[in-house]
């Protein structure tokens, strides 16, 4: 199975290290408390440089989704069809995510989703979001 991963220099960054350890963390402002994604050196609300990392609730809603039927890379031929999602997290941030291969999910825009971190190896894991009823299944 072909998997797409960020290059190693990115996997040393906190977002990816927290995922590899099993949890989704969000880049948060230590002054106003707001979360932002993708990570940034400054808070986009209060412009504080004092930012850190907090565990995410993992709760979100489905903003949109798309089903890739056509493989845009030869190494993805064994992956299609796969589901890409846009998820709005309770913390007020948007994330790109998906549905893990082999998991069936009937999707409807606006439905509640829960994060499930899937580890691929010691360094690399991804935050998928599943409909709430199925989120706890492993």
């Amino acid at each position: 199975m072909t998997v797409i991963r960020p290059s190693d220099e990115y996997l040393d960054q906190p977002f990816w290290k927290h995922l590899a350890a099993g949890t989704l963390h969000l880049n948060c402002c230590n002054d106003c408390g707001g979360a932002h994604h993708p990570p940034s050196p400054i808070c986009p609300r209060c412009r504080s440089f004092d930012t850190g990392w907090k565990p995410a609730s993992g709760r979100g809603t489905l903003k949109s989704f798309a089903v890739a039927e056509h493989p845009v890379h030869p190494m993805l031929a064994d992956q299609v069809p796969y589901v890409i999602t846009l998820v709005d997290l309770e913390e007020g941030v948007r994330m790109v995510s998906g549905i893990p291969k082999g998991t069936e999910a009937a999707l409807e825009i606006g439905m509640a989703l829960q994060c499930r971190v899937v580890r691929f190896d010691d360094r690399f894991a991804l935050p998928y979001f599943l409909p709430v009823a199925g989120a706890g299944e492993k």
Partner: peptide, 22 residues
């Protein structure tokens, strides 16, 4: 054997490419 993204901005950036959004 892996496909690797090393760009910070969409499309195909490190936060979306792993989900096949390319």
């Amino acid at each position: 054997g892996w496909l690797v993204s090393r760009q910070p901005e969409p499309p195909g950036d490190i936060y979306s490419a792993p989900f096949g959004l390319l």
